[in-house]
Design a protein around this nucleic acid. Structure first.
Lengths: 221, 221
DNA sequence: TCAAAAGTGTTCCCAGTACACCCATGT
DNA sequence: ACATGGGTGTACTGGGAACACTTTTGA
């Protein structure tokens, strides 16, 4: 006979990448979904997630299920929100602590995905299991807000990047074109990047300067 | 023999009021703490909180423990963050979902507090149990950020208020004086208040106009 | 009539935006 | 030489901050 059933804890993660099919193409914001192989919502796409192990932190659980889903380590990982409505799962009561993450496209390309995992355009996700549609909307909103006043976009790029690269991923996140001249000035003024002194060769035009992310000051804001 | 022990879920709440000892005095930002009557941290002050009941939402649990602690209904209630480090409680593993709330000073004055509950100045809390110091700092940071770009300060006032009242609670939250002229213009331009057409009599000086909060537009941002 | 808060007017500055224009490279 | 993205210059704008000033009341 079950005693007073304490709600179960799960950790789920919304993982983003900005993917370019070919070099020089515009990038698209994408996220991986997992096809459910059990009831409820059998066959539906859902966010990667799973139970919290007794000896791991919430953040570690998110990192673990990110690794299990995509084979990747996140370049940015942050708690989003905790969803705990009583009826959000039709069977047992589950409280889901949701994280969101950014991974690099080049790493995501190399990683092998499982059978039931696929990347979807962030603005064209199918109808998901549970309340995961709502969760994705929250994550998108947060990502789009934060890209404006933080350096999170750096997490999507390799260590050296051009300002066009940085603008490209930012535009993909916002699905909106930005003025290149103003973008340059704002980024330079923010102090979040510094030139490496090197230039990117092999392009079709004037070689752009390469930048790196400046040392992360802790305790900022 | 215990099977794999799933971490316990608790809900805690950081409750704020802006308290004025006497009419006309400057207000102070305060929060209620509860003295622990059990181990661990017996005798230490801690945030009000308790277990999540199986049939209530997270928000309802926060509202319930707010009511149990202060006898009040919150005028604003919002999820803050979920804390789940493995060693945050020395005994069992507990994941705490934390809310923060605003209550009205006049209601808080009327409500009776329990024996082991007391209000503390938000910037002078004693050393708390568990990681509750850290939680209070998060809540303060969020409150101070949000008072700048939302209408949450209205939640601390009665239905009709003067702009000086509104400025007063805002100053208490920020612990910083604001320019009355600019504050007025900003609030008026924001469209979050409208004049009632009435004036506050009985003051020592020119009677200020009374305002009310405008109808809350849902779907704003 | 005076003190003090209510309320208005004005100026300065900065950051965001738009957009013209020059620069340097591969083809 | 020319197309194209890299990079600079410049002008306009709106909002925040500082602060002078007028208004209206109680004492």
């Amino acid at each position: 006979m079950p005693e007073d059933p304490s709600p179960a804890i799960a950790v789920s993660t919304v993982i983003f990448r900005v993917h370019r099919e070919q070099e020089g193409e515009r990038g698209h914001l994408e996220l991986p979904l997992v096809r459910r192989v059990r009831q409820p919502y059998l066959g539906r796409w859902a966010l990667p997630g799973g139970p919290l192990h007794p000896t791991e932190s919430l953040r570690d659980a998110a990192r673990r299920n990110l690794r299990e889903t995509t084979g990747l380590d996140p370049r940015h990982l942050e708690q989003l929100y905790t969803f705990g409505a009583v009826e959000r799962s039709p069977s047992d009561r589950v409280v889901s602590i949701v994280y969101w993450a950014l991974v690099r496209d080049d790493e995501a390309e190399r990683a092998r995905l499982g059978e039931n995992v696929a990347w979807f355009d962030a603005d064209q996700v199918p109808e998901l299991a549970f309340d995961h549609d709502e969760i994705v909307m929250w994550a998108l909103k947060r990502l789009r807000a934060k890209v404006g006043y933080t350096r999170i976009a750096h997490a999507l790029l390799t260590d050296e990047f051009t300002l066009a690269d940085l603008r490209g991923v930012t535009e993909a996140i916002l699905s909106r074109r930005l003025d290149a001249a103003n973008f340059r000035r704002q980024v330079e003024a923010s102090g979040t990047v510094e030139p490496t002194g090197r230039f990117q060769a092999g392009g079709r035009h004037r070689p752009p300067a390469l930048y790196r992310s400046t040392a992360q000051e802790e305790l900022l804001r």
